[in-house]
Amino acid sequence: MLAQLAISGIVVGSVYALVALGMTILFRATSIVNFGHGEFFMLGAFAIYVLKQGFGWSYPVAIAIAFGLLFLVGVLVERVLIRPLGSAPFLSFAMMTVAFSFLFKGLTRFFYGRDVSMLPPLLNGEPLDFGSVVLFPQDFLVIAGAGATMTIFFLFFEYTQVGKIVQAASQAPRGAALVGINVPAFHSAMWGVAALTGAVAALLIAPSTLVYPDMGGQMLVHAFAAMTLGGFGSLGGAVLGGLSLGIIENLMGGYVSSSLVEISAYLVIMLVLLVRPQGVFGEWRTSRV
């Protein structure tokens, strides 16, 4: 049972990790904590749903366009809502992300709130039995999809020229601007990328759940828990935090009580912030407020 709980925890956790990674990238680049990140996940799911079920397009086409759309949504959010705030205090940025999260939720509820929306599974197929562990083909897809996306990010940031510039721009925006980097465009792009990771996560999760306007809230809390656990602002920490959270939830449910699964994420957040605010895996990074 332990092996199964752990492996299933990793499957779910890899999605938390992906969403947390998207938030972390945005946070590192812009020092904004996006309270509307769950809604990128939700919008991603709705974009795929509308294109796939509404327009009747095939999965590959719907997914490609939905990813493009979400990137655009992210860029637009930055351009229309975030950039005009200029050098407003931290509180204003946080409020703005709260405001647009409810705006997106309200809009999808207005148009789709009365329907029960669902996506067909990406992969059908019988469960595969590995002795003490059973997995669906879909589970492999989730791990592979999340893993591939995360790997791409790491390679990009660590090994490409652009990635290094991006890191430079997030660490010292003024210096980056001085050496000729277009910092606003870079911020726009990072918002786009953050929204895109939401869509990738939605693609991996939504076919096995429903698509509904409130689906982002839970994901946001899980992403926060993953980031807190791994150390706010650490890319590797976000991933480790997400995977650990998935496992913690399953172990709580399996060995303690099923009623605790729901609050595992909250307990993790509170415990970590009280006991070790720098996160279990992370070094202390003061926020640039």
């Binding site: 904590v33 309270f35 931290f90 946080a94 926060f224 807190t228 706010f232 957040i269 509170m270 912030l273 605010p277 926020s287 407020v289």
Partner: peptide, 8 residues
């Protein structure tokens, strides 16, 4: 403080 407090 800041977002940590918000999340907490």
């Amino acid at each position: 403080q800041g977002h940590y407090l918000a999340i907490f």
